[in-house]
């Protein structure tokens, strides 16, 4: 399923941040989302995921296809690694968590409470959640934060496997993951300040 975005405009807290954005995300491809801090990368990912409505433009092919990994991992500190993953697997209607544990080397940690994991281990668990969703399109927001070099490699391998199986990924990141994905720089799409309209003019 191709995710197609046409002339999209989005807002954060009511303030327009990006406009005139068009791109397509083909199966088997990755897009690397770039742009300075505050440009609206997270807002774009949240809009595509369906957590907030766009100001204008069309998004097609997103319905029930997207798995989203935000800045926070959505883990429960008093549940173990396996319990956390099993929960998300059953919410998404998949039951196989072993490949996800293997991909992020979590087997040795499987009975530890998520609250006792280090920041990098938590992130690995958060990313392992993407594998149990069974969704074809991944939206990843700064996925490599607090990961060491080894874990970044695990993540890149997991994305490559996912792409190889016909999935796709939109990744907001500033580091080079060694993926052969196109770069989508949203810098030029920064929303321009609105001209003062007549209504405001009456007060000035």
């Amino acid at each position: 399923m191709t995710l197609t975005v046409t002339d999209l405009a989005i807002a954060r807290g009511g303030v327009p941040v990006l406009e005139g954005l068009s791109f397509a995300l083909q199966p088997g491809k990755a897009l690397i989302l770039r742009g300075p801090n505050g440009i609206g990368k997270t807002t774009l990912l949240r809009t595509l995921t369906g957590l907030q409505p766009p100001l204008a433009g069309q998004i097609t092919g997103a319905e029930d296809q997207i798995a989203y990994a935000s800045h926070s991992d959505g883990l429960k500190p008093t549940l173990t690694v396996v319990e956390n993953l099993t929960f998300w697997a059953s919410v998404f209607g998949t039951y196989e968590i072993q490949p996800a544990l293997d991909a992020y080397a979590l087997n040795d940690l499987s009975d530890r409470h998520a609250g006792n994991l280090s920041a990098g281990q938590k992130r690995r668990l958060g990313l392992a959640r993407m594998l149990v969703t069974g969704r074809p399109i991944w939206m990843l927001d700064e996925p490599t934060v607090s990961l060491d070099r080894n874990a970044v490699q695990m993540f890149a391998d997991a994305v490559r496997t996912h792409l190889g199986q016909g999935g796709s990924a939109l990744i907001a990141t500033h580091i080079d993951l060694g993926l052969d994905g196109e770069v989508l720089d949203v810098g030029p799409n920064k929303a321009k300040p609105k001209p003062i309209d007549d209504f405001d003019g009456g007060f000035l």
Partner: peptide, 14 residues
Amino acid sequence: WEDGSLDLLATAPL
């Protein structure tokens, strides 16, 4: 909401 799982539940099939 704090740990982000509400966002993830909102995007889940439920």
